[in-house]
Nucleic acid binder design. Structure first.
Lengths: 151, 151
DNA sequence: TGAATGTCAATGCATCTGCATCTAAATTCC
DNA sequence: GGAATTTAGATGCAGATGCATTGACATTCA
């Protein structure tokens, strides 16, 4: 053991800053296009991936890292906008299944155009392909279950 | 030109997820310690760096990437808590200077302990020193002014 | 079976945020 | 100098969030 322990702030500070910068750029682009925000996109995308079987709110909670009431109210807004429907859950009287509507799929597709377009200048233009790959890989390491050994 | 353009989402998705995970961990630790959130910390830290000359709200706005009203109201809360003082700005009758109070410095120091302790398991334990250095470097690239050439 | 406990989802309340607007002072321009 | 414009900061209002709690159903276990 010779190398010093990594300074977490040397990672965290630029990570937080990059996140805020990119997020702001995307949200601004969406707003300017008269479209909903990224939180709506994320939920719609998960529903789209889930297909006809839909998703339970608690599943979205895990996938989106949102608190329970966050999913509940986000789903409210999306339902009021007509982008999803709540359906009683056969087999669990407490629960429900959220299903994407065609309008939901349509708006998600529209949002995707703007989203992807905003990513280019925010990310792609700053990195070579190799750098992007390496960055993605290193960020992935932060997401793995805690190592238990190191430090 | 042979390599394909980098996929920005391969970077953005883990970046956003890592951000949320780490942020939640830190905020949870702070809350559990009965301390204010990271937004308070960031402002207090900038004031501490600024020293006796303090900072103008519009300077904080740039440093913290917050909207104007965000700084205005965050400063309100910190002032009400006794962690900073607003002082009329000599030379600009519209403006003011924000100054850290001793209590502000003290709470920031307390927060730092918890903040740093939460970083270890969230970041350091996942990366070697070399990986952390490389990750910090790559994240830094995302923050540089737009290249104008690429893409 | 039925009481105790656990899980799914909604909601009241206080706080925070975003947007637009407002006031006051500074600067520009004639 | 004085009107028009710009800049610094505050704020009313609507909508979003966090926290704690509630209501309804499921599950466990005696």
């Amino acid at each position: 053991m010779t190398t010093s322990a990594p300074d977490p702030f040397a990672v965290w500070l630029p990570l937080a800053r990059a996140h805020k910068t990119i997020l702001t750029a995307v949200e601004t682009a969406l707003k300017q296009a008269g479209l909903p925000g990224l939180d709506w996109y994320d939920l719609l995308w998960e529903l789209e991936c889930a297909g006809d079987t839909g998703l339970r709110p608690y599943e979205l909670q895990e996938k989106l890292l949102l608190p329970q009431y966050g999913v509940s109210r986000l789903a409210d807004r999306l339902a009021r906008a007509g982008y999803l429907t709540r359906q009683d859950c056969s087999g669990d009287g407490r629960g429900q299944v959220l299903l994407l509507t065609p309008e939901g799929a349509r708006i998600r597709a529209q949002m995707w155009e703007v989203y992807a377009a905003a990513m280019e200048p925010a990310i792609s233009s700053h990195l070579s392909t190799g750098e992007a790959r390496r960055l993605a890989e290193l960020l992935g390491k932060l997401l793995r279950p805690a190592p238990a050994d190191k430090i």
